[in-house]
């Protein structure tokens, strides 16, 4: 039990001790965080470019009934069943949103809101009723527990202990995501930024769209035990948006996911060591902090380059330009 909110910052205990004592344990946690950020960040760049950030949010919520029903049917936490349930849920979510928005006068944003809350509620009811002894904690769904990663039973492959199951699954998913981005780079690039051109080049725009949604669903399934459904969104959006204050081209954006992931995972790990709070939450807090720094100082559109800021704080003369769209009267 603790009494004060901010414990005194003991540098030795926060920064050195974790890597001296129980190195393997803490390394696995940090590695898991890194892999989650990396996989989500790669997919997230395309999600942000397509303005699907909130569709991603919706999908991450509505995976819950898919996973919960897969649990119910197989009565185990088998990975294939979870992935199948998640893929079905993801495709159904996008189809439902399209259906409601096409077949009635409900606007797309309201359709997204209705679909994901309904599916999430179904998942919550299923979890609270039917799962019995299978472990799927409601708290875990909302904010995950990355700290339990090393506790899971380890996967042994040809006599070599690879590591805990979630870590291996996440590593595999990250590898798949990287391969997908490399193999389908052209298709993803063109469909994300100019779907008209993509169509005229004969690219299967819809296939790419649904493929991306399924890849997103798989990544979220692999990650959600660690970070929960809401924080996955942060991992999708923050790397892409933060990097966009420094670089502009897609390859650079994709490359910059790696250093940002290292920063998020290590920063979050040590912050949670200090405050003794949720590791996933701390990772996103670090991500948010880095975003604020980038927003303030970034060379591409940061606040210090904003004309109004320069006028006020750097004592430069105001730029004599009429606001956009105004008509200059003689």
């Amino acid at each position: 039990m603790r009494t004060e909110f901010f414990p005194t910052l003991d540098l030795q205990a926060v920064f050195v001790a974790p890597w001296v004592e129980m190195f393997g344990w803490n390394f696995q946690i940090a590695l898991m965080g890194f892999l989650v950020c990396l996989a989500c960040g790669l997919i997230g760049n395309f999600v942000v470019a397509r303005r699907l950030a909130l569709v991603g949010d919706a999908i991450s919520h509505s995976l819950l009934p898919g996973i919960a029903i897969a649990f119910l049917l197989t009565a185990s936490r088998s990975m294939p069943a979870m992935f199948a349930g998640a893929a079905v849920a993801a495709v159904l979510t996008t189809l439902f949103i399209e259906f409601i928005h096409r077949k009635s006068r409900v606007k797309p944003d309201a359709a997204i809101g209705i679909v994901f809350t309904t599916l999430f509620a179904v998942g919550m009811v299923v979890i609270s009723r039917g799962l019995g002894d299978v472990h799927l904690d409601a708290d875990c769904v909302l904010y995950g527990e990355i700290g339990f990663t090393p506790l899971q039973d380890s996967i042994v492959w040809f006599g070599i202990a690879l590591g805990p199951r979630p870590l291996v699954a996440m590593a595999g998913m990250t590898l798949v995501d990287i391969l997908l981005v490399i193999v389908f780079y052209r298709q993803l690039l063109v469909t994300s930024f100019d779907s008209g051109l993509a169509r005229s080049l004969g690219m299967p725009v819809n296939v790419v769209h649904y493929g991306l949604m399924i890849a997103l669903a798989f990544t979220i399934v692999a990650a959600f035990e660690a970070v929960g459904v809401v924080l996955v969104i942060a991992m999708l959006i923050f790397p892409a948006v933060t990097a966009s204050f420094f670089v502009e081209r897609l390859p650079s954006l994709l490359w910059s996911v790696a250093p940002l992931s290292v920063a998020y995972s290590l920063g979050g790990f040590h912050l949670s060591m200090w405050l003794d709070c949720s590791i996933a939450g701390a990772m996103v807090v670090v991500a948010g902090f880095l975003f604020l720094v980038a927003w303030a100082l970034g060379p591409k559109g940061g606040l210090i380059h904003h004309p109004r800021f320069r006028a006020v704080f750097l004592a430069k003369s105001k730029i004599e330009r009429p606001p956009e769209g105004s008509v200059h009267l003689p």
Partner: peptide, 27 residues
């Protein structure tokens, strides 16, 4: 002040604030 699209801006605030809340709650 930025070129960030509306959906991303909403997602940033949603998940960022929520993460702070989760950290505080776990504390």
């Amino acid at each position: 002040t930025t070129r960030i699209k509306e959906d991303s801006a909403l997602g940033l605030v949603l998940s960022g604030f929520y993460a702070i809340g989760i950290c505080l709650l776990t504390v």
